[in-house]
């Protein structure tokens, strides 16, 4: 009987995880024109990206800035002086990379 419960919970867990992967992560960044960059994140089902890890690295992968999406699913940071990459990291299969030179006003 206990086994059934365990299997049940396991199945539920799988189901929840499955739901989480059914949508696509989205992230879009723009240059505010005042030496800052803002990125906005979300998911294709309309759910929020609040709390998602944001990482700004140089082209060699060295981390310049570590942060998180705020409650409005936004993350603003000072524009690095060198070429950089922004990583939206919502877990495995949910990463989005934006190149600094493609982030425009």
């Amino acid at each position: 009987m206990k086994k059934i419960y365990i299997i049940g919970f396991l199945a539920m867990g799988l189901f929840i995880a499955g739901q989480a992967f059914a949508h696509t992560p989205l992230c879009s960044c723009w240059d505010n024109g005042d030496d800052t960059i803002t990125c906005e994140g979300g998911f294709s089902d309309g759910s929020s990206a609040a709390g998602v890890i944001m990482r700004v690295t140089d082209s060699d992968g060295k981390v310049l800035i570590n942060g998180k999406m705020n409650e409005d699913s936004e993350f603003t940071f000072k524009k690095p002086s060198m070429s950089y990459i922004v990583e939206f990291d919502a877990g495995k299969g949910h990463k989005i990379i934006s190149k600094g030179e493609e982030i425009l006003e």
Partner: peptide, 11 residues
Amino acid sequence: KMIVNVAGAPT
């Protein structure tokens, strides 16, 4: 009405 979307996020 005319609706424009950016980056696929439905709002």
